[in-house]
C-alpha cells in the first residue's frame, strides 16, 4: 500500500495537501470496505454451513419418501403389492443419492469464487 503512494506524494502533496489527504482517505475507505466485504463473505459461508447439512439430509430423505409413495400408489392401482414399492424404494434411494451429489457439486461450485476472492485482497495488501 505504501509503494503506490510514494511516487505520488511529491507531485500532488506539493500543490495541494488537501487532495493527497483525500486520496489517502479514499484508499483507506476502499481497504476497509474490501475487508468488510471479505468478512461478510466468510460469515455467509458459515451461515450456509449450518444450512448445508440440513439441506443435504432433507434432499436425501425426501427422494426416498417420494419413491416409496409412488411405488405404493402404483401397487394399489395395479394390485402388485409389494413389488413396485420395493423397486421404487430402490430408485428413490438412487434419486436421493443423486440429489445429494448434485447439491454438493452445486455447493462446491458456489463456494469456490468467494475463497478465490478472499485470497486476492490479501495478495494485494502484501
Amino acid at each position: 500500500m505504501n509503494d503506490p503512494q510514494k511516487p505520488k506524494r511529491p507531485q500532488t502533496g506539493g500543490t495541494t495537501p488537501l487532495t493527497s489527504d483525500l486520496e489517502a482517505r479514499i484508499a483507506r475507505a476502499q481497504r476497509e470496505r474490501r475487508a468488510e466485504g471479505s468478512e461478510r463473505a466468510g460469515e455467509a459461508n458459515t451461515m450456509t454451513g449450518w444450512g448445508k447439512g440440513l439441506r443435504l439430509g432433507s434432499e436425501f430423505v425426501a427422494a426416498i419418501l417420494v419413491g416409496l409413495g409412488i411405488g405404493w400408489l402404483l401397487d394399489m392401482w395395479l394390485n402388485t403389492t409389494p413389488w413396485l414399492m420395493l423397486v421404487m424404494l430402490m430408485l428413490g434411494f438412487a434419486a436421493g443419492v443423486m440429489n445429494v451429489v448434485r447439491t454438493a457439486a452445486e455447493m462446491n461450485k458456489a463456494a469456490n469464487p468467494p475463497t478465490a476472492a478472499q485470497g486476492a485482497p490479501n495478495d494485494l495488501d502484501e
Partner: peptide, 12 residues
C-alpha cells in the same frame, strides 16, 4: 430417477 428427484423437491 430424475422424475423422483424432481418430485421430491416440494417435500424436501
Amino acid at each position: 430417477i430424475e422424475v423422483i428427484s424432481f418430485l421430491s423437491r416440494p417435500i424436501s
